[in-house]
Design a binder for these strands. Structure first.
Length: 576
RNA sequence: GCGCCCAUAGCUCAGUCGGAUAGAGCACUGGAUUUCUAAUCCAGCGGUCGGAGGUUCGAGUCCUCCUGGGCGCGCCA
């Protein structure tokens, strides 16, 4: 049994030394300046609790602290106590933990937690454009992160396959559509009809009324024309979406769109009525939320009797609660829909449903395009037809990678495969690099730049490590790799090792805050430290014992980067 | 008008529960390669953390107000 959790070890020692009642004041933090130490305890709060001066407490804790097999020393510096790990313990815990794939470096055993993640959720009969990417890659990353942490995860693609947007498509087709063109290229053809609808509906409001009728027919009819068209377009859309999903390496546990709840909405409405919160307003069925601090009521039934987004989300929430018994229900949906989820939660609170507490909206920023005339960043308007299709972006990135490969590594064997991996990854990585709430400024130069903090930068570190490992002819088997290893010889790798130890905390934070960028940034940091280390320390030319130790370090770094990139959905080719 | 989000280096962004001297990348300048892959590394340049108050031993981080930008605000999703 190895001890991977060095911080936990120090924490429990301090709790034992200071008393359990002080445990809330034991806040360990890595000093910004690593020269101070590996972990620091700020004594301000302890000092307050004992009403003495912080430096005094710090001095006392440092003096009374006895070194052990993990902690080499504790030293007071003003109001701080700085702790330093033994370098061998630091190296051993990270390298063995990673190579043996023991939690927290490896996958955790089943936690018993169940988590539903609603993500991607594109509207059917529309092309998969750049705007759909964020929910898709953020949600997919969260799904993998929670799986790694041992949760039972239900990733749901809540397709927009019901309601008015689809009714509008239908209206356009029924007015202007031609069957043979639809059969030829369904998605492209429907998109052109959709743009036409947008233009004509702006002039002629009767189109929307017509759409409402079609929706009513769809929702009430059984085997009518609307239903057949709906089935056809849904099937075609799913086929078409598989392309981007495959390229992005995204998978779902359930593909259940809004239509899935068609027969579950009546039950949900019954619960609303039973809870006594449904009222009539201008012919519609609404739940007033003023007492919940929300001015806008929630409409569940339109005056023509048809359902809405809220009705389906309510039915979906009940269904998921009963089917998956989740601890958390995450909705990876753009920040512009914040009010919607506030209303959904408020409505459930008003109904007295504890389910409300489980619902978490995971909002993210918009993708903005630079207006060439004004120079301002603006939202992409898909209706205006200036949407950028995801395939277009990925193709462009891949083409750029091809050029770079020809320039830098023309002898690479599987160029096309690697170009696809690196190109697609660069786009995904770029999306998951910044905090999800930030708007993404879509800029071709940034998107296609592969220097510095980018996917290829991390992949390059991985490829270098792979190359060294291959040339080393080291055994693949972990036990022999670690046999008779002198960890003292890795004291010069302390920066890499300390960063490796951040993995566990980053995973927790990424999961709790639904923030995959934490992992992305850790990978940049690990890759940077590896690049620096390899520059200054030769592995294969080192003296035998040192070489053995460094090979283990290389193998562990490679494994950790592989894990991290895997979690955010970025490929790790061995050569590039 | 009301509500929510954002504002940190020229640009794009990190900054963990409030803790020591605010960090990266890009761009720019200079340097490193008979190489385990230079898609790399090292150094330099660059800051009124949007502004003003407040809380605190301590604020980029918390509170209030203001400014600028974005998003949203009943039968769309």
């Amino acid at each position: 049994m190895i001890l991977s959790d060095l911080r936990g070890h120090l924490e429990s020692r301090l709790r034992a030394a200071l008393g359990e009642d002080k445990s809330e004041f034991i806040l360990l933090q890595a000093p910004k300046n690593r020269e101070h130490g590996d972990l620091a305890l700020a004594c301000f709060m302890l000092a307050k609790a004992e009403s003495t001066a912080p430096p005094k407490i710090a001095a006392r804790i440092a003096a009374e602290f006895e070194a052990d097999e993990i902690i080499e020393q504790a030293s007071a510096a003003g109001p701080f106590v700085n702790f330093k790990y033994r370098r061998a313990a630091l190296a051993r815990s990270a390298i063995e933990g990673i190579l043996r794939q023991e939690a927290p470096f490896g996958p955790s055993p089943a936690s018993g937690k169940s988590i539903v993640i609603d993500f991607s959720s594109p509207n059917i009969a529309k092309p998969f454009h750049i705007g759909h990417m964020r929910s898709t890659v953020i949600g997919a990353a969260l799904r993998r992160i929670h799986l790694y942490l041992g949760a039972e995860v239900h990733g749901v693609n809540h397709l927009g396959d019901w309601g008015m947007p689809f009714a509008k498509m239908m209206t356009a087709y029924m007015r202007w559509g031609e069957a043979d063109k639809l059969a030829e290229q369904p998605m492209r053809y429907m998109f052109s009809l959709y743009i036409r609808y947008g233009k004509e509906a702006a002039q002629d409001p009767s189109l929307d009324k017509e759409a409402a009728v079609h929706f009513k027919n769809l929702e009430t009819g059984e085997d009518n024309e609307e239903r057949k068209l709906w089935q056809f377009l849904r099937d075609e859309s799913l086929k078409a979406f598989q392309g981007p999903y495959d390229r992005l390496g995204v998978s779902f546990d359930h593909i259940t769109g809004e239509s899935f709840y068609e027969d579950k909405m009546a039950g949900a409405m019954d619960r609303v009525i039973k809870a006594g919160v449904l009222t009539e307003s201008e012919g519609a069925g609404v739940v007033d939320l003023k007492d919940q601090g929300i001015k806008v009521p929630c409409i569940l039934r339109k005056s023509d009797g048809t359902t809405l987004y809220h009705t389906r989300d309510l039915a979906a929430a009940f269904y998921r609660l009963e089917t998956f018994a989740p601890d958390r229900m995450l909705y990876v949906v753009g920040s512009e829909q914040k009010l919607h989820f506030q209303q959904l939660k408020a409505m459930l609170v008003k109904m007295g449903e504890p389910l409300a507490k489980k619902i978490e909206h995971v909002p993210f920023g918009l993708i903005l395009a630079k207006n060439p005339d004004s120079g301002k960043w603006e939202k992409f308007a898909s209706r205006g037809g200036n949407a950028i299709f995801l395939d277009e972006v990925l193709d462009e990135a891949v083409a750029n990678v091809r050029r770079i490969i020809e320039a830098k590594n023309p002898d690479l064997t599987n160029k096309e495969e690697v170009a696809e991996q690196i190109g697609v990854s660069a786009i995904v990585f770029n999306d998951l690099k910044n905090g999800r709430i930030k708007d993404v400024k879509f800029d071709w130069d940034t998107m296609l730049s592969f220097d510095g903090e980018t996917g290829p930068y991390v992949q390059y570190a991985y490829a270098r490590l792979s190359g060294i490992l291959q040339k080393s002819e080291a055994p693949e088997e972990v036990d022999s790799l670690l046999e008779n290893l002198d960890y003292e010889l890795l004291a010069d790798a302390e920066d890499v090792l300390l960063t490796m130890h951040e993995f566990s905390g980053c995973m927790q934070r990424a999961a709790e805050q639904s923030e995959p960028s934490v992992i992305t940034n850790l990978m940049i940091k690990v890759a940077g430290e590896i690049h620096s280390y390899l520059h200054e320390h030769h592995v294969l030319r080192a003296e035998e014992a040192t070489k053995k130790a460094r090979i283990a370090l290389v193998a562990a770094s490679r494994q950790l980067i592989s894990t991290g990139l895997g979690l955010i959905g970025v490929a790790a080719p061995d050569e590039m």
